[in-house]
Amino acid sequence: MNTALSFNRLVTLGLWVVGGGTALFLIAPIVAIVPLSFNAEPFFTYPMPGLSLRWYEEFFASDVWQLALRNSIIVAIFATILSTILGTLAAIGLSRSDCPARATLTAILISPMIVPVVVAAVGIYYAFAAVGLLNSLTGLVLAHTVLGAPFVVVTVTAALSGFDQNLMRAAASLGAQPVEAVFRIMLPLIAPGVASGALFAFVTSFDEVVVALFIAGSEERTLPRQMWSGVRETLSPTIAAVATLLIIFSTLFLATIQWLQRRAERQKLTQFE
């Protein structure tokens, strides 16, 4: 018995070591960027000669960086709105028992998550070139909607898997119209799933760079594209400052998504009780 316990403890310890080493290997390059954003000198070197906030000041004072930030926010907001509406409607339709060719439609809707981004970017480029949507924020919003909607479809479909369809039948028997039942019964219950999908769509749009390189012009540069251009042209610690802000931003969003998912699980358990 003692031998078995010792062996189990060794296995558990080994798993913790391997898991911790893997996490450290993945996180270390990201964490290494953060101190460099406070470097007093314009070099990516350790040890740093001093600390300074000059690169953050340069980011907030630069017209180029602020234009990129504004474009990213505008595109992400409108792409999130469109992705959430279209993705939620698609998920509701796919959740119906009488939906024809459900598996085929699901595969088509989530294909932007599976197809390599560069392949999707080439297709979007040629499609938008034919209708004059290149070099415009409208084209960028529509392209990011295509990339973000599948995340909404997946999260809302998962939320609907625990939704009791008998509630909709009960509402219909009491005289509620289908649209009224959706807005007053279904959406409040699956709201955490919809919010999680919206956050995923926002982060997807805000961090996307490949499609932006293909279809955005100089006046439509987003923050990730400006960072890409900065790496190629003039490698400055300002990029490290922007990267640090994006790390904080992404961490907060992921924490919010985790909170919403836990809330959805609690609601699901309450519903079954």
Rank of each mutant, 00 (worst) to 15 (best):
1 M>L: 00
1 M>H: 00
2 N>A: 03
2 N>E: 02
5 L>F: 05
7 F>E: 07
8 N>V: 09
8 N>Q: 15
9 R>G: 01
11 V>K: 13
15 L>A: 15
19 G>C: 13
25 F>K: 03
31 V>F: 15
33 I>A: 03
33 I>D: 01
37 S>M: 03
39 N>T: 11
45 T>K: 13
46 Y>C: 01
48 M>Y: 11
58 E>W: 02
62 S>V: 02
67 L>I: 13
68 A>V: 11
74 I>V: 13
75 V>C: 12
75 V>E: 12
78 F>P: 12
78 F>R: 15
85 I>E: 08
85 I>C: 08
88 T>N: 04
89 L>W: 13
92 I>N: 00
94 L>N: 03
95 S>H: 08
97 S>Y: 04
100 P>H: 00
102 R>S: 07
105 L>H: 01
106 T>F: 14
107 A>K: 04
107 A>R: 04
111 S>P: 00
113 M>I: 12
113 M>V: 11
115 V>D: 02
118 V>A: 15
118 V>Y: 10
122 V>D: 07
122 V>W: 07
122 V>S: 12
122 V>Y: 12
123 G>H: 10
128 F>R: 01
129 A>K: 09
130 A>H: 11
130 A>G: 09
139 G>V: 02
143 A>T: 10
149 A>V: 11
152 V>M: 06
154 V>T: 11
157 T>C: 07
159 A>I: 02
165 Q>N: 14
168 M>C: 03
171 A>P: 01
174 L>S: 03
175 G>E: 09
177 Q>T: 11
178 P>E: 01
179 V>T: 12
186 M>W: 00
186 M>S: 00
188 P>I: 05
190 I>Q: 00
191 A>K: 12
192 P>I: 02
195 A>R: 11
197 G>N: 10
206 F>Y: 05
213 L>I: 10
215 I>L: 12
218 S>P: 08
230 G>N: 12
230 G>I: 09
237 P>T: 10
240 A>V: 04
241 A>V: 08
241 A>I: 10
241 A>G: 06
247 I>H: 02
249 F>I: 07
260 L>E: 02
262 R>W: 05
262 R>S: 13
265 E>M: 09
265 E>L: 12
266 R>M: 10
267 Q>W: 08
268 K>D: 12
269 L>Y: 05
269 L>H: 06
270 T>E: 15
271 Q>G: 03
272 F>P: 02
